[in-house]
């Protein structure tokens, strides 16, 4: 059976690929605006590809965020509760997270199939869209596995998980949001 640390490693690898996608988007938009400005030519489909890569980046990042329980949550009540109740709340909350991601992965699969059959393409180069959405979907299915793994461990081996973070620790680790 995969140990929690192996899962963390896998989650981080997925996340690193996602963050590279972020770098590509930035570079693509930068080069596209430069080429429009200097040479008055647009890079074909730059707009569409940047958008699709953004989708891939975010959906591939979902798994790690879920595994590390890094979603933005309000722990006002949680802080006031005794440990036993906290544990129940953690399980309940993560059960809902898992349910949401499982259903999302399921309907997105249908969506990718629809786009495949519809033959949708980008407008300039007529690249088929479904492979992009398919790759994005892979991120959500990885998130499904990570969410399920966390759920199982949360119930049976909570001590083996990456320490449950509060909003306070979260903010310290990496600056986020507004």
């Amino acid at each position: 059976m995969a140990t929690p640390s192996m899962i963390t490693t896998a989650a981080t690898v997925i996340e690193r690929i996602a963050s590279l996608s972020l770098a590509v988007i930035t570079l693509l938009i930068f080069v596209a605006s430069l080429s429009r400005y200097l040479f008055a030519t647009s890079i074909p489909d730059a707009h569409a590809i940047a958008s699709l890569l953004l989708g891939i980046a975010i959906l591939w990042g979902l798994g790690s965020t879920t595994w590390r329980n890094d979603h933005i949550a309000v722990d006002l009540v949680w802080q006031l509760c005794p440990p036993a109740l906290r544990r129940l709340m953690d399980i309940f909350a993560h059960l809902l997270v898992t349910a949401f991601i499982v259903v999302l992965a399921w309907v997105l699969f249908g969506r990718v199939i629809t786009i495949l059959h519809a033959g949708q393409t980008t407008s300039d180069l007529q690249l088929p869209l479904w492979p992009f959405y398919g790759v994005a979907w892979l991120g959500v299915s990885a998130a499904t596995l990570l969410a399920l793994a966390r759920l199982v461990l949360l119930i049976w081996r909570p001590e083996s998980l990456p320490a449950s973070t509060s909003i306070v620790d979260d903010a310290a680790k990496e600056p986020r949001d507004g």
């Binding site: 429009r36 008055a40 030519t41 647009s42 407008s123 300039d124």
Partner: peptide
């Protein structure tokens, strides 16, 4: 050719690039 056009739709965007211009979204 050499101009930047804000196209109304993707057909026009294709037309613009056919004519050697750039589209801006």
């Amino acid at each position: 050719s050499g101009m930047t056009i804000r196209p109304a739709n993707s057909s026009i965007a294709n037309f613009v690039s056919e004519l050697g211009g750039a589209s801006v979204q």
